[in-house]
């Protein structure tokens, strides 16, 4: 891996780099630390002075309250189910579209692509009412698909996959055609397997987006047993009585899966983002 000699950077430079990075890590991580630690304290302890930075003893109590209030298991499942299904669908659909935009010539291609890119600029608050109207007409209110399907129309995924697909050699596709492969087999058996990093990047990005999605699920989900984590946590933000320990625990639980997903896929993520951005 290391092609250059390790002593190339002076020892002073090395120390400096480590110091800067560690300070950066502390700043990045501190709010999370505060969140984790707070989830083990009572509301009163969190708000007292000086700030509590040690681990408290109220974790189990907070968990019990949290579970009583929002039914953490069910809510967690909803979030996970929606995020996973969404990620799979959107990765599949985006890469198909990206492939088409990168490797085919057809009438209307440029217009389609322009439309897709233009939608990135629309603030989504303005679409809520018309979209909600449609969900009602379709009878989709309070279903998983109401959360999932409208958000599949995601320009970023298409863009990212197109950029990655551009570098796939045309000659390979041509050769496969001559060998008698159908168009779909070429895509699924030859092109997609080489796109792992991009797919990983997209998967993290989409999982993250859907996991934290708030406004849209809030509008279309109607009962507690369908709520996703962010919405369930928002119910704890009541008027005059807020239990901060409980909320902090809830947010900690909400953060962990994303950390894990990122840890698993981060290598692919970086390579995939690379493919998307370099040829921008």
């Amino acid at each position: 891996m290391l092609k250059r000699k390790p002593n190339e950077a002076g020892i002073l430079t090395q120390i400096l780099v480590y110091i800067v990075l560690i300070i950066g890590v502390v700043i990045s991580f501190f709010p999370f630390y505060l969140m984790f630690v707070s989830s083990t304290h009572t509301s009163g302890e969190i708000l007292s002075l000086p700030p509590k930075l040690n681990i408290g003893s109220n974790l189990i109590n907070n968990f019990k309250k949290l579970n009583d209030d929002i039914g953490i298991l069910r809510v967690f499942f909803n979030s996970l189910f929606i995020a996973v299904v969404y990620t799979i669908l959107t990765v599949l659909l985006s890469s198909m579209a990206g492939y088409a935009f990168a490797k085919f010539n057809f009438k209307g291609k440029k217009i389609f692509f322009a439309i897709v890119l233009a939608t990135i600029m629309i603030p989504n608050q303005v679409l809520l009412v018309p979209l909600f109207d449609m969900m009602n007409k379709f009878g989709w209110i309070n279903t998983y698909k109401a959360v999932l399907i409208p958000t599949l129309a995601n320009a970023f995924g298409i863009f990212l996959m197109r950029q990655n697909m551009l570098s796939f050699p045309d000659s390979v596709i041509e050769a496969a055609r001559i060998d008698g492969y159908g168009e779909f087999s070429i895509f699924f058996k030859i092109v997609l397997p080489t796109m792992r990093p991009a797919l990983g990047a997209l998967a993290i990005y989409m999982f993250m987006n859907q996991w934290n999605n708030f406004m849209w699920p809030l509008i279309v989900l109607r009962t507690k047993n369908m709520y996703t984590l962010p919405i369930a946590l928002s119910t704890l933000n009541g008027m005059s009585r807020i239990d901060y320990g409980e909320i902090m625990l809830g947010t900690t639980i909400a953060t962990l899966p994303i950390m894990i997903v990122f840890l698993i896929f981060q290598k692919q993520f970086i390579k995939g983002v690379l493919g998307g951005a370099v040829k921008g």
Binding site: V129, F132, D133, N136, I219, R222, T223, K224, S234, T235
Partner: peptide
């Protein structure tokens, strides 16, 4: 069935609901 939500969430949902007179 009593559905519990955040205070602002009630209003946001009501606004969207009344605007399309559904849900």
């Amino acid at each position: 069935e009593v559905v519990e939500m955040g205070t602002n969430d009630v209003y946001d949902k009501l606004t969207v609901g009344f605007a399309s007179n559904e849900g």
